[in-house]
Design a protein around this nucleic acid. Structure first.
Lengths: 107, 107
DNA sequence: AAATAATATAAGCATATTCTTATTTGTTTG
DNA sequence: CAAACAAATAAGAATATGCTTATATTATTT
C-alpha cells in the first residue's frame, strides 16, 4: 500500500464525527437513519461521512429494502483493529436509541 | 482519549508528506535540513509538517547545536506502532543521502 | 402508477489546510 | 558583537473539507 492510499485512509479517520460513526458500528450495523438519530446531525451530513469512510474502504454498505446498513470493513489495513480498539465506548448511545424505541426504525 | 484528540492525531497522519517523514524517522533521527534534502520540498514546508506531527505528539524534537533533530514519539497512541509498520520502506532514501555525502549535514 | 419513505447527490458558503516567499529567531564562530 | 547558517514563523493564495438546503434516486406500499 502506497503513501497516497495510506494518507487517504488516515484522512478519512481524521474527523470526530467519522470516528464516532466507527465507534457505533463497532457495536452493531446501523442504517443511516439510526446514525442521524444518535449523532444529531442532518441526514446528508451522515451520508457524506459514510461515503468517505466507504471510499477509504473502512466501512461497507448493504442495502436491505429501503434502508442501507453500514458495517465495518477495513480488512485492507493491518492497523485498523487497534485503531478501533482505541475509540471510546458509545454502546450507551445505542442502548438509548433502543430504549426510545427508535432502534428498529429500519425494520 | 476522546474523539477530538484522536481525530487530531489521525488528521496529522492524513498527509502523504507527513507519512513519508514518519517512515524516514522510523529509520533514524533526522534534522530538518536532511528532511528537506530527501523530500525535495522547501524548508518551511518541512518545518510546518513536523510541527503538526509534534502537536499531535507523534514526533518529538531535540535541539543539538544549531540543528533540530526529530524522532518518533507517540507513546500515547496504542495503535501507533502498527501504523508505523504499515508504512513503505524509505531506508533507500537515507542510504542515498549518505552516499551523496549529505548525511552529516548536521554534524 | 402515485404517494411515501430512506438515502444520495448537488450546489453554495464558511472554514481549514498546504503551499510559497519573506522575515524572524536562535546558535555558532570569527 | 557581527556574519553565517539552521529552523521557525508570518502572511497570502490556491485548494480541500464540512456544513446546509434543495433536489434526485431507489424502494415500498396502496
Amino acid at each position: 500500500m502506497d503513501f497516497d492510499q495510506l494518507a487517504d485512509c488516515h484522512k478519512a479517520l481524521g474527523d470526530k464525527t467519522r470516528l464516532r460513526i466507527l465507534a457505533l458500528l463497532r457495536e452493531e450495523d446501523l442504517c443511516v437513519g439510526e446514525l442521524v438519530e444518535i449523532l444529531k446531525i442532518t441526514q446528508p451530513a451522515v451520508s457524506q461521512h459514510v461515503r468517505k469512510l466507504r471510499n477509504a474502504r473502512l466501512v461497507k454498505e448493504r442495502r436491505q429494502g429501503q434502508w442501507v446498513y453500514y458495517s465495518l470493513d477495513g480488512k485492507d489495513y493491518p492497523f485498523y483493529s487497534s485503531i478501533l480498539q482505541s475509540l471510546p465506548d458509545l454502546s450507551a448511545e445505542i442502548t438509548r436509541l433502543k430504549a426510545e424505541g427508535k432502534k428498529g426504525i429500519c425494520t
